[in-house]
């Protein structure tokens, strides 16, 4: 059973989202997603300063068996990316919710975070798969 922290929000496409105190939003992929992908070998990070609309494909996560798009959970501007993943992409496997975070955005509207799935809804989503 994969880990689903209750303090985060989720998308159907397996991103997690954390609203930070400063109003920025941190994004990564869930434990369940990293299990599906297997050993991650490369992350193509989004460009900082780029603005994306919710559900835009913004980054590619590559494992030996798949290269998967990651989608922007909410509309916003990318302000930071996790450069440590350039050399150690497998941190997404070992620590999907902490060291394996992928990028930070300045949301167009903070309230969008509340519209995403909560942990129990996400849990039932992946149970159906």
């Amino acid at each position: 059973m994969s880990e689903i922290p209750t303090d985060l929000r989720y998308t159907k496409s397996h991103e997690w989202v954390r609203l930070e105190e400063d109003g920025t939003v941190t994004v990564g992929i869930t434990d369940h997603a990293q299990e599906l992908l297997g050993d991650i070998v490369f992350v193509e990070l989004p460009e900082v300063d780029m603005e994306y609309t919710a559900e835009d494909a913004c980054c590619v996560i590559e494992s030996v068996k798949a290269a998967s798009d990651m989608y922007m959970p909410i509309t916003g501007e990318v302000i930071d990316t996790n450069q440590a993943l350039v050399d150690e992409p497998d941190m997404i496997n070992s620590s999907p919710y902490d060291d394996g975070w992928i990028f930070r955005i300045k949301p167009a509207d903070e309230d969008d975070v509340e519209q995403l799935l909560d942990a129990s809804t996400y849990e039932s989503e992946i149970a159906d798969e």
């Binding site: 070998v41 590559e62 494992s63 030996v64 068996k65 798949a66 290269a67 798009d69």
Partner: peptide, 12 residues
């Protein structure tokens, strides 16, 4: 780098 290829990534 096969993950980029058509047999895995299909329309992408």
């Amino acid at each position: 780098l096969q993950a980029r290829e058509q047999h895995i990534r299909r329309s992408k």
